[in-house]
């Protein structure tokens, strides 16, 4: 039985998801760079916003990247 091909029914979720995460990553990164320092006493001196912001930005960028290549493939 041949399987039905995806009808690509809806828009690609990777785009809003990737955009949201990239945005989060960016603002956390900027806040970590230019925001106040004393708040990191809580997190044992670790600048969590800077580190985690960078990680989230990479995740977001990956989603956007995949979405971009997927679109190029199908056109």
């Amino acid at each position: 039985m041949p399987e039905k091909k995806s009808r690509s029914h809806f828009f690609d979720l990777k785009i809003p998801l990737g955009s949201l995460l990239s945005f989060y990553g960016l603002i956390l990164l900027l806040y970590g760079l230019f925001g106040p320092r004393h708040i990191y006493e809580k997190s044992l001196g670790l600048n969590v916003n800077l580190i985690w912001g960078a990680v989230i930005m990479v995740v977001g960028a990956l989603f956007l990247g995949f979405a971009h290549f997927r679109r190029r493939d199908s056109s």
Binding site: L28, I39, K42, S43, W52, G53
Partner: peptide, 11 residues
């Protein structure tokens, strides 16, 4: 509340 600074806390 104990560990997270604003920013990641909001997340």
């Amino acid at each position: 509340a104990h560990y997270l600074p604003n920013g990641v806390l909001g997340l």
